[in-house]
């Protein structure tokens, strides 16, 4: 009788021009161990990753966490009862609070995760970057949280223009003056609600790091990347691995200061003097994480190993100068799969 393969559930199967990281995580896991049974967890019947039949056999739709924790938990329990989940890797910012709440229940069912603690999760929030900077020694641009237009009108005393006006989860609009900022403020509030984060613009080049923390202050691995091409939404469409010791030092500082457990993406600006300024920490793998596997440091697989309590054996080095270049392709999908996703929210192939 053959041994049961590892069952890993991965969320975030949207793969449009602003893709979720799920498909990239799945590809990295497949590269490392093709025997892993991947269980895709999507939110929409047309999430493109659902139809990537060469990557994922079983897919289930989840209710949005905003519909309530009970429905979300009940669906996860159902998936577990059907297939058995060994490890779950959430990849979306907005679902992480739900997974943090459910972590004890998941553990009780034997489902392993690699999540930060609530305290770690909160510390890296956009509105707390100054606190994080002070704790870690990482440079952070002037940043503040505003809840009202009155606060916004005074904030330039501490956060000078030009500034970015950001939602708590997503989006950033550059404002040169109060008029721009007011317009952006209302847009963010309409989409994401309050609070709104404002951050002084740092001129320079953007760099990103995907990193994995062991939860004890150690950096399991990190890959630095410079975007080479952006979409009109400012998302990386092509990028290249880089290695500047000062860049990777930021990842180490972040891990030491927060004892971060799990994956994250660190977004930085490099000014003309070569100093790195922390813009944002995303508490999950980025959509470009397959580059880490392509460059020889498979961080998603290391995360799965860590979640199982194993010591990842991925080394520390990666190939500098490895590129990713995204492509849009039309997948041919079966109507049976689509109808199953629409009617029952699940498919097994």
């Amino acid at each position: 009788m053959s041994e049961r393969p590892l069952h890993v559930a991965v969320t975030g199967l949207n793969a449009t021009d602003n893709p979720a990281p799920g498909v990239a995580v799945i590809r990295a896991l497949r590269d490392a161990d093709p025997s892993i049974r991947i269980i895709g967890l999507g939110y929409d019947a047309l999430d493109p990753g659902i139809y990537a039949t060469d990557l994922v056999r079983d897919v289930f739709l989840l209710p949005y966490p905003s519909q309530g924790l009970t429905a979300f938990w009940s669906r996860l329990e159902y998936v577990h009862s059907k297939l058995g989940i060994d490890v779950i890797i959430p990849t979306l910012d907005a679902e992480l609070p739900a997974f943090l709440d459910l972590e004890p229940k998941l553990r009780a069912l034997g489902i392993k995760t690699l999540l930060p603690t609530r305290e770690q999760f909160t510390l890296r929030e956009k509105g707390r970057l100054a606190q994080l900077g002070a704790k870690s020694g990482i440079r952070v641009p002037a940043t503040a949280v505003v809840n009202t237009i009155e606060e916004l009108s005074r904030v330039h005393f501490s956060v000078p223009y030009p500034m970015y006006v950001k939602g708590l989860y997503y989006g950033a609009t550059l404002a040169m003056n109060l008029e721009d900022a007011t317009h952006a403020f209302y847009k963010v509030v309409a989409q994401w609600g309050i609070p709104v984060v404002v951050q002084t613009q740092i001129l320079g080049e953007e760099f990103n790091i995907v990193a994995l923390g062991d939860g004890e202050g150690g950096l399991v691995g990190a890959v630095g990347m410079k975007k080479l091409m952006l979409t009109d939404k400012g998302k990386g469409w092509a990028g290249i691995t880089v290695r500047d010791p000062a860049l990777l030092e930021v990842a180490q500082q972040f891990m030491s200061a927060t004892k971060w457990r799990g994956p994250c993406e660190i977004e930085l600006m490099r000014d003309k003097l070569g100093h790195y300024h922390l813009i944002e920490i995303n508490p999950r793998f980025p959509a470009w994480v397959y580059l880490s596997a392509g460059a020889g440091l498979n961080l998603p697989y290391a995360a799965v190993e860590l979640a199982q309590g194993k010591q990842p054996n991925i080394g520390t080095d990666y190939k500098v100068g490895t590129l990713f270049v995204r492509i849009s392709i039309d997948q041919i999908a079966s109507i049976t799969d689509f109808q199953n996703m629409v009617t029952t929210g699940e498919v097994s192939r």
């Binding site: 290249i240 880089v242 290695r243």
Partner: peptide, 9 residues
């Protein structure tokens, strides 16, 4: 020419 520190080509 590829600069591995900055990713510039």
């Amino acid at each position: 020419v590829f600069d591995p520190y900055t990713g510039a080509t």
